[in-house]
Design a protein around this nucleic acid. Structure first.
Lengths: 201, 201
DNA sequence: TTTTTGACCCTTAGAATAAAAAAGTCAGAA
DNA sequence: TTCTGACTTTTTTATTCTAAGGGTCAAAAA
């Protein structure tokens, strides 16, 4: 089955390329198949439906994300630097996969099915747990005062996500936020992170 | 012209009643006129078009809001209590006027015209200035450390608004958020306010 | 002169339908 | 076991149509 998994990965990579450029809804199974020079039924041999493929794509993206942030989870730096790095990583992923609209329940959200939404919530939960762990370690190191790390992680991530959400909505109605808006957004998130940490001390 | 202004106010009140229940777009000028037992052209005698009426409505709502918060701008309480009160006032207004979708550039935003949007931005700016002033006083009192109050006010308000925005989007797709969601939202905003203040010290 | 109205026009939102595209299937070939 | 051409079904999108709603005006009422 290792061969099958490899093919699945190739398909996922192909799908991502299209998704990044045109978004999920504007990408057809035919196009993905043509890109890979296979027939549509071949795709359906590896994925029962489009949702499953999208699920695979989302899963890969989050796997990549967690792989990167895990590296800096235990490195010997301050909480502020750590959260700064994480914020920048998130920002990179946000930019790269912007067309997939993964940043929460946007209205024309590409995540139509309940299956996708529930998987997305699982990833969100995992990210919260990850950050809770980060806060927990910071408490152990005496960097911040003891608190309910899960609640704090949720609040922290939601505050950052909220800023993202507002920036997208308020911004120009182009389909892509401008470089300037993106930068302003990141700045705000970094500022908020700093204040947040100081507020926890 | 005091008589004219009175009539304008009556019309605005009538419009608000409809807007609160059905939203701006689902309220017709005919309905507002009928509620007030006048003809449609009478409405147009006092307001050149629907936008102007909506503008009057928004203006009244914000006037009411600022009137309330101004009272507690200088009262002898801590910054935390002050921001807590303001957050609750905002929350009350948010609930009351939820159907008007005034909480920022939501997608199906009722604020179609540029005129309305620009007026809305003015109100937003005024609110930022108001909060900047609050932070400035807190600095003078030694409650928090000196910073760029305008930037901080913007960041603070945007963080709170972001939480609101996420709550609306993530929540059930009913047209009205549940009591439970509303309460959770307020809790988060109050928590964030506290951390925010502590982070500024 | 200021305010109000019935009757009217014109633009636009929304329903209904038709056409096109895309999702998904299957018998059979490689 | 993996793949495909040809097919069906579902969903999106384009189009048309209609009626509702925004807005006007000449004339009446106050």
């Amino acid at each position: 089955m290792v061969e099958t998994d490899k093919k699945r990965d190739v398909i996922i990579e192909g799908a991502i390329k299209r998704f990044i450029h045109y978004g999920i809804n504007k990408t057809t199974m035919n196009e993905i198949a043509e890109d890979l020079s296979v027939s549509k039924p071949s795709l359906y041999y590896y994925f029962p439906d489009k949702n499953s493929l999208v699920l695979g794509v989302i899963d890969k993206i989050f796997t990549d994300y967690f792989e990167i942030v895990e590296k800096d989870k235990v490195s010997d730096i301050s909480l502020e630097d750590r959260l700064g790095i994480f914020t920048e990583v998130k920002h990179r992923f946000f930019q790269k996969y912007y067309m997939l609209h993964l940043s929460g329940g946007s209205p024309d959200s590409s995540l139509n099915s309940d299956e996708l939404k529930s998987h997305f919530l699982k990833m969100k939960k995992k990210n919260e747990d990850f950050h809770a762990e980060v806060f927990k370690r910071a408490i152990e190191k005496g960097e911040i005062a003891p608190t309910d790390v899960n609640k704090i992680a949720e609040l922290y991530l939601e505050s950052l996500a909220g800023i993202t959400s507002l920036c997208i909505m308020h911004g120009n109605k182009e389909l892509f936020p401008s470089k300037k808006e993106m930068k302003a957004m990141l700045e705000k998130q970094l500022s908020l992170s700093k204040i947040f940490i100081k507020g926890l001390q």
